[in-house]
């Protein structure tokens, strides 16, 4: 058994060592896999805030992932075609600057989460799952039937977007950007979990009645958590689009929502590094098992079942000592 913190650092080290050694052995594909893992981890960290800390089982986080992706796709496609996004009432141009794209992705997915959350948080339990799923599907079908940005075929961006001072087309540099963002978000989410907000969010998850009767507006609390959660997943969506230099309606598909949820369950619900471990394992399995069979999801299903049945608290829960309470 390890301290959870020790395990977390170990996980980060692996995430750095694997792509770093791939640079030495000149295997850019491995770096791309690691980048995918990091981006999926980020999406999972977003969902984990709502699902793990807040107990809000959202089956529609693909909506935020997709909005982040399309924020990148739309801005970058206008930049590469030299056409403004709109001219009236004021001029908005496309951009290929990553920081600007991230900001737009965060804000737009946060706004979408505000709308989705405001409506879906009026329900709970299975209804909440279904309402969030329905919102995700709405976005999916909307993008399929929206011809302006590629419709069903999606949208290709030929050159990766720019980050000041870096060559983003170099796989390891792009990995570094994604990894740094993941670390920053993990740090912020860790602070958030320990803050009065986090204490209240998890407290309301454990006992809603108690939270209400100490004067906490649980609806507003959860809505704010849902917006932050959606915004983080949206940022991951923008990075994912940049990794592939391609966005398509599949980013909105319910399978994406399900996969993000699988990362969390594999790694450990409500554990800070749960989605990081889960996403890394998912990518590894996809690569190894996917090479053996097109139907590798069968094996994934078996592993997922084993984790749910025999490793309560996911892989981190199995390996790390239970952290006493909220951590002082």
């Amino acid at each position: 058994m390890f301290q959870e913190r020790t395990l977390d650092i170990f996980v980060l080290l692996i995430l750095v060592i694997v792509p770093a050694s791939a640079v030495v052995t000149d295997e850019p594909f491995t770096i791309t896999l690691a980048t995918r893992a990091v981006i999926f981890a980020l999406a999972g960290v977003g969902l984990n805030l709502a699902l793990g800390q807040g107990g809000l089982v959202s089956f529609g986080h693909a909506a935020f992932f997709g909005v982040g992706g399309y924020a990148m796709g739309i801005l970058a496609s206008h930049a590469q075609n030299y056409t403004p996004i709109m001219e009236t009432p004021f001029l908005i141009e496309g951009t290929n600057s990553m920081p600007v794209i991230w900001l737009v992705a965060i804000v737009s997915s946060g706004l979408v989460a505000l709308l989705v959350g405001a409506l879906s948080l009026r329900t709970s339990g299975v209804y909440f799952i279904m309402v969030t799923l329905a919102f995700g599907q709405m976005f999916y079908y909307f993008t399929i039937s929206w011809p302006a940005y590629g419709g069903e075929d999606g949208l290709s961006i030929y050159v990766r977007n720019q980050f000041p001072g870096l060559n983003t087309l170099d796989p390891i540099q792009f990995f570094g950007i994604c990894f740094a963002l993941l670390c920053i978000v993990l740090f912020l989410v860790d602070r958030l979990n320990k803050s009065p907000f986090g204490l209240a969010l998890n407290g309301a998850h454990q006992n809603e009645e108690r939270a209400l009767t100490v004067g906490i507006n649980v609806y507003r609390l959860r809505l704010v958590a849902f917006v932050i959660s959606g915004a983080i997943t949206g940022l991951a969506g923008a990075l994912f689009a940049d990794l592939n230099r391609f966005v398509s309606p599949t980013m909105f598909s319910w399978q994406i929502s399900g996969e993000i949820m699988i990362f969390i369950i594999l790694g450990g619900v409500a554990r800070l590094f749960g989605p990081v471990v889960g996403a890394a394992l998912f990518i590894l399995l996809e690569h190894v098992l996917g090479g053996l069979s097109d139907y590798w999801f069968i094996y994934l299903g078996v592993i997922l079942l084993a984790v749910v049945l025999f490793a309560k608290g996911g892989i981190i829960g199995k390996l790390a000592k239970r952290e006493a309470g909220h951590g002082q």
């Binding site: 602070r191 958030l192 320990k194 803050s195 009065p196 907000f197 986090g198 204490l199 209240a200 998890n202 407290g203 454990q206 006992n207 108690r210 939270a211 100490v214 004067g215 906490i216 507006n217 609390l221 704010v224 006493a324 309470g325 909220h326």
Partner: peptide, 28 residues
């Protein structure tokens, strides 16, 4: 909140009372 310590439950009450719910950075 059954998974919280005794103190955390009491702090949860204090958080609600003080209106500190929307503080995001400083550990409770």
């Amino acid at each position: 909140a059954m998974d919280y310590t005794v103190l955390e439950n009491a702090v949860l009450g204090a958080v609600g009372q003080s209106g500190a719910v929307f503080r995001f950075f400083k550990p409770a």
